[in-house]
């Protein structure tokens, strides 16, 4: 079993514009209504990169910044686990279109931004951190894979860690093959449960995780509130909504998220 504390959290998605304004919706105090998620240009990046930053980078950096700030630690302290299913579909589509054209030339800038770890790189450059950062993907199970990986790393290394997961719809013709209904991003700052958190704020929640064989029942891990429930299958990162509800309400919960041939069992305690 892995035990970690959650010190910071953020969410950005339709009708969920950052943590503070999302808490009433995640706790059922306020009804969810659709509103487009518009992440700001990342202030952490230099002007040129800021202008160029696409939706995916903006999404990830917005939630990462809010979560780390909430944890009360400097932005460049945590290690990073970045999880995304689709990667940057806008960049991928542009490269594939130009390659399918007769001349077949690729833009060098698009090419180096096509790597899956481009988002992690932008964050690390933006905050000036030389800490380790990994970048993973596992299709619909990306949230569960990233959460398990992040918790294992924070617990074993005994260090603060930023888990950031994000996905956005890809342009056609890609979206028809891999439907992503809307942009969504979640970030959590974790600390190992058995290490004093020093200057950081007290935990928002405590997580206990384990992996077990056998897929979890469909819907057993769906969010409890109707708004979040309507979002949970529209974006791989939205699979984090059940956990976010528990953190927002400060209540205990227990559920299991599907991952590959099995499931990640999550226990949340206040």
């Amino acid at each position: 079993m892995i035990r970690v504390n959650v010190l910071g959290v953020s969410v950005l998605g339709p009708g969920l514009p950052g943590w503070v304004d999302s808490v009433p919706i995640l706790t059922g105090v306020q009804d969810w209504t659709y509103a487009e998620a518009i992440p700001p240009p990342p202030a952490l990046l230099p002007a040129n990169e800021r202008r160029r930053a696409g939706l995916l980078i903006r999404l990830a950096m917005a939630v990462a910044e809010e979560a780390v700030a909430m944890a009360g630690i400097p932005l460049n302290v945590p290690r990073g686990v970045f999880a995304c299913s689709n990667g940057d579909g806008v960049v991928l589509d542009a490269i594939l279109r130009s390659m399918a054209a007769p001349e077949g030339q690729i833009s060098p800038t698009l090419f180096h931004n096509s790597v899956h770890n481009a988002v992690a790189a932008n964050w690390m450059i933006g905050v000036g951190s030389m800490r380790p950062a990994t970048s993973i993907g596992m299709h619909d199970d990306t949230f569960a894979a990233g959460l398990l990986k992040a918790a294992a790393e924070a617990a074993h290394e005994g260090e603060m860690l930023l888990f950031c997961t994000y996905d956005a719809p890809m342009p056609e013709p890609l979206n028809a093959k891999r439907v992503t209904a809307f942009p969504f991003a979640v970030a959590l700052v974790m600390a190992p449960a058995d290490v004093p958190s020093g200057e950081a704020r007290p935990p928002l929640a405590r997580l206990t995780l384990r992996y077990a064989g056998g897929r979890s029942e469909p819907e057993a891990w769906f969010p409890k509130m109707p708004g979040p429930r309507s979002l949970v299958t529209g974006n791989p990162a939205a699979r984090g909504l059940r956990l976010l509800e528990a953190i927002a309400s400060g209540s205990a919960d227990r559920f299991a998220l599907p991952l590959a041939g099995g499931r990640v069992e999550v226990e949340v305690t206040p």
């Binding site: 790597v115 899956h116 770890n117 990994t134 993973i136 596992m138 099995g262």
Partner: peptide
């Protein structure tokens, strides 16, 4: 049937 994931870091 254990946990599976792909790392993509260039």
């Amino acid at each position: 049937a254990g946990p599976a994931l792909t790392v993509s870091a260039a």
